[in-house]
């Protein structure tokens, strides 16, 4: 039971990062390898806002989310927009380079040592329900993740910019002909995706309050797998994939401690198997190869 709550809340964290991947992939068809590092930058910005400038915790978090969203837009402008008219593989390589750049930038500017992320008192409590001890962070994670997902669904389904994003995801050229400002919509998508990364960085950092330049790699690759397994480009799929991975990550070592070392291999094997037998993921739409 305790493991189950842990698994669900970790699943939500992975799910949120994965939704960021899925959002960007859905609109621009780009596997953004730098997403995990945007996540890391988000955590650092919050850290500096609260420790260096002395912002109150909540303000620091909001400040961090806003800055990360800006960073996402900037990355898109510099690294992806000039390559949009070239084959997709160019942008893929560019995102790998960007991930590299952000990590090394963080090493140089923030330093390679681990810093402890500030955790407010409210999140430190442990709730005891009979036999089960639940960290209050887990509860908050679950509640806020659901809220964020609902908000995201609202933006996508009910607002004009959400409509524009959905149109872009099906056809670029037609969208342009219909008078949609493609550049602005894509910028907005990146802002949204990066903000999501920052939100999930908050919850991740609350669970594991150590931040360091390479912290984005682990949740990044996890979320990436979640997004792919769930059908990249599909938000529902990303959430389900995140859940699945959270379960695997927590429950597998709990059930079979002696095999816990093989967890990584197993998770990646799952990824490969899903891709080979169901390339569009569990919830992906069937897309014809190059009509």
């Amino acid at each position: 039971m305790q493991h189950l709550v842990n698994a669900i809340s970790l699943g939500f964290v992975f799910g949120l990062v994965a939704v960021g991947y899925a959002l960007v992939y859905g609109v621009v068809k780009l596997v953004n390898f730098a997403h995990g590092d945007v996540f890391m930058m988000g955590a650092y910005m919050m850290f500096y806002a609260s420790v260096l400038f002395g912002f109150p915790w909540l303000a620091a978090v909001i400040f961090g989310i806003a800055l990360t969203a800006l960073l996402g837009v900037g990355i898109e402008k510099v690294a992806y927009r000039p390559l949009r008219k070239y084959p997709r593989i160019n942008s893929l390589v560019s995102s790998i380079g960007m991930s590299f750049l952000l990590q090394n930038f963080a090493v140089v500017v923030f330093g390679g040592i681990q810093r402890s992320f500030p955790v407010p008192e409210m999140m430190k409590k442990t709730i005891i329900l009979g036999e089960v001890r639940i960290q209050s962070v887990s509860i908050y994670t679950i509640i806020f993740s659901i809220l964020v997902v609902l908000l995201l669904t609202f933006i996508l389904q009910k607002t004009r910019i959400g409509l524009a994003m959905r149109i872009l995801s099906t056809d670029f050229e037609t969208a342009r002909l219909m008078g949609i400002n493609v550049d602005r919509t894509i910028s907005f998508t990146f802002a949204l995706g990066s903000a999501l990364a920052a939100v999930s960085a908050v919850f991740y950092a609350l669970r594991y309050p150590q931040i360091f330049p390479f912290m984005g790699q682990y949740p990044g690759s996890r979320a990436f797998i979640a997004a792919v397994v769930g059908g990249i480009g599909s938000i529902k799929g990303a959430l389900v994939g995140g859940f699945l991975l959270g379960m695997l990550t927590v429950l597998l070592p709990a059930a079979f401690p002696e095999y816990s070392g093989y967890r990584e291999a197993l998770i990646f094997a799952l990824l490969v198997i899903v891709l080979v037998f169901k390339p569009n993921g569990l919830f992906g739409q069937e897309v014809g190869e190059k009509a």
Partner: peptide, 26 residues
């Protein structure tokens, strides 16, 4: 499996493969 997956997906599969190797060797 290249016959089934292409483009970005192939990149992901091969990336997954090298991670599996690393994990197995560990």
């Amino acid at each position: 499996p290249c016959l089934r997956v292409r483009g970005d997906y192939l990149a992901i599969v091969t990336y997954g493969f090298s991670e599996i190797i690393r994990s197995l060797f560990n």
